[in-house]
Write a protein that binds this DNA or RNA. Structure first.
Lengths: 119, 119
DNA sequence: TTCATTGTATTACTTGCATAATACAATAAT
DNA sequence: ATTATTGTATTATGCAAGTAATACAATGAA
């Protein structure tokens, strides 16, 4: 796992995003144990408290669960993972459409624009 | 001009974005005088300083210019406006592709996905 | 000349974030 | 039993960003 941060937004938010992606892309496999809070903190070069805060959010959305004194694990709920991935995709897509609409492109124009862009 | 804010990001940043859109979509016409700092602040229900900060950013990117003691005006540089609109579109598009790539969709899959989404 | 309106500058307050330093609790491993 | 490792909680501190309150400066209008 490789972490990268910008200075625009809180570190812990970016940690949540990147860890979430790690799960959605199976970098952290289903049901697998993830590294300890302290280890992840070292890896990301952040304070353990900051990492803890990020992991708490992921736990709230059920992507990970805790076995006290044993560690944290990726959920075994494949459906949940797929749902979250799908929702994320939809959210990004609608957000993108909305952005483009604001500068005068409707959905079809936007799609045409993308086609052209990758040529 | 109608302003809307979320609690995620600084107000002044959102002001910049929304004012910029207002110019790109000709809600504020080319060369036109825009309302005074205080009036805009009242309109958006923010502190004049917050509005001032937003306007300063727009001035830095040359979308507006100031006639001291007279007011602020939208640039008369049509090319600049078009450039900024084009860059904004490109930026949003690449950002979107990047987001989708992270969850496993390449450019072509992404475009197919959008086609399906608007059906 | 006086006043109202414009943009601008200064200063201060508040809050959120990140970090730090510890401490506690539970349990698996030795 | 002891130790090491796990997650969790608490408290404090520093810092930067955002916002607010106020005052200043310039100029056109009355």
């Amino acid at each position: 796992m490789k972490f990268n941060f910008d200075n625009e937004r809180p570190i812990y938010i970016q940690l949540v995003e990147q860890l979430r992606i790690g799960i959605l892309t199976s970098e952290f496999g289903i049901g697998e144990k993830i590294p300890s809070v302290r280890d992840l903190a070292m890896l990301a070069k952040v304070n353990p408290n900051t990492m803890q805060k990020a992991l708490a959010e992921l736990e709230e959305e059920k992507l990970i669960y805790t076995e006290r004194t044993n560690g944290k694990f990726v959920t075994k709920d494949v459906k949940l993972i797929n749902n979250i991935r799908d929702n994320l995709a939809k959210e990004k897509a609608y957000e993108f459409f909305s952005n483009m609409k604001k500068i005068g492109m409707d959905e079809n124009k936007t799609i045409d624009y993308l086609r052209e862009l990758i040529k």
